[in-house]
């Protein structure tokens, strides 16, 4: 192990240009992937925020007793799809309208806005079908006048999310694939440059396992370094965009660590495949 590590580091020292080139190539392909991931992450969280606003609003006929209303709130609160239920009285509705639309303050008179219950849905139940089924169950109560949930809007958000998910997954796969291809060919190049060394090792009777060691460490280190540089580049870009274009969210620590480790893993696997091919002869 000690010797393998020494040999791997020797490769860095002996061919600093080639090693730097490998690390840079890995860094840039992961950087492209990282930027894409950042866009996907932010689009996803923006969509999630919009989705959170999906709610069903049921307007209550005036003169309904508070007991009946309280009973509905209790019933609806126990639906499995429902996250929260809130009762908005006539007075509260009026207050809110005046607050939100200050310049029309005088237009609103007491009693003009009906009381309502606002139903927010749990994550995963914000698709058009669940929303429709919840509102159907609300229709049963005869003191409920009208139900609104912005049907068109819900469908649009839902469709947008589906498209974004599909596009994100397929683009992400393509980006990852391109990164893997670039990284493994970079590593194969580095190994080809050392084929003489491999040849001599074989000639003097080194086992394949022994020969593999330094190359695996080499690939792992290059992938790790490339991943770190890519993370740095992504972060710098993110800061720049945040300052001049739009505020966004960066990867969480766990995601960042996973990204860097993915780079190291690709380096390791790329090396394993390339050395394996080299050793496969005979």
């Amino acid at each position: 192990m000690n010797l393998a590590l020494r040999e791997a580091l020797r490769a860095f020292r002996r061919a600093p240009m080639l090693s730097a080139l490998s690390v840079t190539t890995i860094a840039f392909s992961l950087f492209a992937f990282g930027l894409f991931g950042l866009v996907a992450l932010n689009l996803g969280s923006a969509l999630a925020q919009i989705e959170e606003r999906v709610e069903v609003r049921a307007f209550i006929a005036s003169g309904t007793s508070p007991e009946a209303t309280a009973a509905v709130v209790g019933d609806v609160g126990s639906f499995p799809e429902v996250a929260s239920v809130r009762f908005v009285s006539e007075v509260q509705a009026l207050d809110r309208a005046r607050r939100e639309l200050g310049e029309f303050e005088d237009v609103f008179e007491a009693g003009i806005l009906p009381a309502s219950i606002e139903v927010r849905l749990r994550d995963g139940f914000r698709d058009p079908e669940s929303v429709r089924s919840v509102s159907k169950r609300l229709e049963v109560y005869d003191f409920i006048d009208d139900i609104r949930y912005g049907e068109e809007w819900v469908e649009k958000v839902y469709r947008l999310r589906n498209i974004a998910t599909a596009a994100g997954l397929s683009l992400g796969l393509i980006f990852a694939l391109v990164a893997i291809i670039i990284i493994s060919s970079t590593i194969r190049m580095a190994i080809l440059a050392r084929s003489r060394e491999i040849r001599i090792m074989r000639l003097v009777g080194a086992t394949n396992q022994f020969i593999r060691g330094p190359f695996l460490i080499d690939g792992f280190l290059k992938g790790l370094l490339g991943g770190l540089v890519a993370l740095l580049l992504t972060w710098v870009t993110f800061e720049f965009v945040g300052q001049y274009v739009v505020q966004a969210t960066f990867f969480g620590t766990r995601l960042a660590v996973v990204g860097v480790l993915a780079g190291a893993l690709i380096g390791l696997l790329g090396s394993a495949v390339s050395v394996g091919r080299h050793l496969g002869k005979v």
Partner: peptide, 17 residues
Amino acid sequence: PALRRRLGVVFQDFQLL
């Protein structure tokens, strides 16, 4: 590998690192 350790090989182009 075990067999090769019992052989020595030399080439025209030396094959040195």
